[in-house]
């Protein structure tokens, strides 16, 4: 039996919702996270593998959010034992809030386990009209399956656009990027630094500066929706195993739907 399988993008998001619940995420969290899984598998590749690898680390009861506010528009998230799938969307919400109120928003992510999901998170911001840049001290980010150290998403005329630069349209944003580049790694982190910076819709660069062919993530996603994705059998099986955690055992009572 072949080890690589053809999988539908919608199949990934449908099963992922329940798989993430099987990992302990609440419905409202898993509902936001599931499309990030299918996006990452389609655009970056290897998302289900990464989810399988980190499942033991992110499985278990939830504690209070490990978030601190550093300044008016800057927050810090300790991601130890947590997935970007879970804490990433609220981080994007904070950045959206900052950008829409005219500030350069910033979220520092410490001890990130799964940066493969970053382009999907950036897409949420871009669809809201926000420009978002992910900066990393190590080339550990993935954009359309290529390793990059900067990941930039912003709103184009027909949908989100992606690039590997950090070119905003306002001096405040350039200053924020420069400030980030001059900072040392914070204590208590794994040494690598990863931050998300967001800017307001009216400060975005001209979209014709972007070379769409190189990082045409939307086209890649659309192609995957039409043609499916290739996934290692054990990665897909793991996703289904997580989903089955949420299924209740068979019993006479179960069969009679509590109406016996």
């Amino acid at each position: 039996m072949t080890s690589v399988m053809d999988v539908g993008v919608s199949e990934v998001s449908r099963v992922a919702l329940w798989a993430l619940r099987g990992l302990g995420m609440a419905f409202g969290v898993a509902d936001r996270a599931a499309p990030l899984v299918s996006w990452a598998e389609a655009v970056e590749g290897g998302a289900l593998r990464r989810l399988r690898e980190i499942s033991p680390q992110i499985d278990g009861p939830r504690s209070d959010p490990r978030r601190s506010q550093v300044s008016d528009a800057t927050w810090r998230f300790d991601m130890s034992g947590r997935s970007l799938l879970e804490l990433g969307p609220p981080a994007i919400d904070l950045l959206t809030m900052a950008a829409r109120t005219g500030k350069v928003g910033r979220v520092d992510l410490l001890n990130t386990l799964d940066p493969i999901f970053l382009s999907g998170l950036a897409r949420i911001a871009a669809r809201r009209g926000i420009g978002l840049v992910a900066l990393s001290t190590a080339p550990q980010l993935s954009l359309c399956g290529q390793q990059v150290s900067r990941l930039h998403a912003f709103a184009g005329p027909k949908g989100p656009l992606f690039s590997d630069d950090a070119v905003g349209g306002a001096p405040e944003f350039d200053e924020a990027v420069a400030a980030w580049e001059s900072e040392p790694s914070p204590a208590g982190s794994d040494g690598a630094r990863l931050s998300l910076l967001a800017y307001a819709p009216d400060q975005q660069p001209m979209s014709d500066l972007v070379e769409p062919a190189r990082f045409d993530a939307e086209r890649k996603f659309a192609f995957a929706q039409a043609h499916g994705v290739k996934v290692e059998r054990r990665d897909l099986e793991h996703l289904y195993e997580l989903e089955i955690r949420t299924w209740a055992p068979t019993s006479d009572r179960s069969r009679t739907q509590a109406l016996a």
Binding site: W18, R21, G22, F27, D31, E243, I244, R245, T246, W247, A248, P249, T250, R253, S254, R255, Q257, A258, L259
Partner: peptide, 29 residues
């Protein structure tokens, strides 16, 4: 009184009774 959940029998949707039936924490929305 009730909650919906997936059964181990191929994931069929079932309706359970709170307190009595298991898996309330995995209830469908």
């Amino acid at each position: 009184r009730h909650f919906w959940y997936h059964s181990i029998e191929n994931g069929e949707q079932r309706r359970g009774e709170r307190v009595i039936d298991p898996h309330e924490h995995f209830e469908s929305f």
